[in-house]
Amino acid sequence: MTLVVAVASLAGCGLPRSGPTRGELLETDATPGDNAVVVPVDRRIARAASMTPALGFSKDFQSAGIVGSDDIRPGDVLGLSVWENVDNGLLVSQGMNSTALTEVQVDGDGFIFVPYAGRVRAAGNTPEALRQLITGKLDPQTPDPQVTVSRIAGDGATVTVLGKIGGQGVYPLERPTRTLSAMLAKAGGVVIEPEVAQVVVTRGGQTGRVWLKDLYSNPRMDIALRPGDVILVEKDQRSFTAIGATGAQSRVQFETQSLSAVEALAQVGGLSTNFADATGVFVLRDETPAVANAVLGRADIAEPQRIIYVLDLTKPNGLFNARDFMIRDDDTVYVTEAPYVQWTKTFAAVNGSLSPVNSIASLTGN
């Protein structure tokens, strides 16, 4: 009797523990609103709660047609080369047969200056058309001049590529690089695992995001680029928090596009063999109104609803339900301690390092 009184007294004194017990969480008020609602997970709940917003570009991004990326624009930077068939040419130095005019920028009015050709309108022309125009202006002054024109990165028709990419930088929009996938390839390709790579495109005040794998599997996501676009390649930023009787307690990054409760537990080392209660795996989430209504069978929830999903792995379909239940960004996965753990702590507090069995024998005189 003395042992029972001592154990009960200590159990009520708040011995150290990793968090609330399964029973305490199940006693949560079941009224939707400010309070959290406890929902046991079955097959229907797992399906209703696993609706994850898909990534993808909006119709505005998808409907943008291919631009005439070969047209020169104000702000573009051009590279010019001129060959002359005479020893002492207009532009070519003694002993040379060609000269290069590097980084010739198109001014705000759309013109460039070429020695002996004067001020030439570049904007609105393709590099080929501009080549012919400059050739025509030089031809009366030097026999059969040969001219090449190329576009390089400048302030005109260019895009910026950043992040986990082989070559960050500013790239001109040219015929081979007018789409998102082509520009990524031009910039050296993605340097992180495709499974967790996301591509973000910012255009003016709009931002779109897509999985890298979806970009290549869905042609609609391979959008046409526009001058001024900023492309960012980054690793998936989603994470969940694991606490309680798990192999590790930490904030954990997603390793795949979709992550089930079983996979999330596996990422943190599974349930603690010595402490975990397999009937008390909880997922805490601020659920969207649409999903909350579907889960709770209601139609009047208009604000985010706190829901505590309960996974009982000991039930016949428990592991299947956990496999079908998808973890989402910012979820908290909490595993309660088995009831005997608190009793073990209590016995240890009563009798020091003696085991529970020895404690009972000592107190009863047996």
Results as ranks from 00 to 15, higher is better:
96 M>N: 12
213 K>T: 13
132 Q>C: 12
100 A>K: 10
118 G>H: 13
209 R>D: 08
111 F>T: 10
100 A>V: 12
120 V>W: 05
116 Y>K: 09
196 V>W: 02
104 V>P: 11
98 S>W: 10
109 D>W: 07
165 I>Y: 01
170 V>Q: 14
153 A>E: 03
208 G>N: 01
143 P>I: 12
141 Q>I: 15
214 D>Q: 09
211 W>I: 08
100 A>Q: 13
176 P>S: 07
185 A>G: 11
207 T>N: 11
183 M>P: 14
185 A>I: 10
145 P>C: 12
97 N>E: 08
119 R>D: 14
132 Q>F: 12
217 S>Q: 14
100 A>T: 09
160 T>C: 04
138 L>K: 05
125 N>Q: 11
132 Q>V: 15
170 V>K: 04
217 S>M: 10
101 L>S: 03
119 R>W: 12
210 V>N: 00
157 A>Y: 07
200 V>D: 07
158 T>L: 12
187 A>C: 01
205 G>W: 13
224 A>N: 14
127 P>M: 03
113 F>H: 03
104 V>D: 02
114 V>Q: 04
124 G>E: 03
103 E>C: 08
198 Q>W: 02
128 E>F: 10
166 G>N: 02
112 I>T: 05
224 A>C: 06
142 T>R: 06
112 I>E: 01
146 Q>R: 06
96 M>S: 15
115 P>C: 00
152 I>C: 04
201 V>A: 12
164 K>Q: 14
116 Y>T: 10
117 A>F: 07
198 Q>M: 13
210 V>I: 00
157 A>R: 14
204 G>E: 07
218 N>G: 01
194 P>D: 07
150 S>F: 14
115 P>A: 02
204 G>K: 13
135 T>H: 06
207 T>G: 06
111 F>I: 11
215 L>R: 08
185 A>Q: 09
112 I>H: 12
212 L>E: 04
178 R>V: 12
220 R>P: 03
174 E>I: 11
125 N>M: 09
180 L>P: 10
98 S>K: 15
112 I>C: 06
179 T>P: 11
161 V>S: 01
106 V>F: 09
216 Y>C: 02
107 D>S: 05
149 V>C: 09
172 P>L: 06
214 D>L: 07
203 R>E: 07
121 R>P: 03
216 Y>T: 15
200 V>Y: 05
113 F>D: 12
181 S>G: 10
205 G>L: 14
173 L>E: 04
111 F>K: 06
108 G>E: 03
222 D>R: 01
142 T>K: 01
223 I>S: 01
192 I>N: 00
109 D>G: 15
97 N>R: 13
116 Y>G: 02
166 G>T: 13
188 G>M: 12
186 K>P: 09
128 E>K: 05
194 P>V: 06
150 S>W: 05
141 Q>P: 03
162 L>K: 02
152 I>M: 08
213 K>V: 10
97 N>D: 13
129 A>W: 06
100 A>H: 13
159 V>S: 07
212 L>I: 09
124 G>I: 04
170 V>I: 15
182 A>I: 05
102 T>H: 11
212 L>F: 14
131 R>A: 00
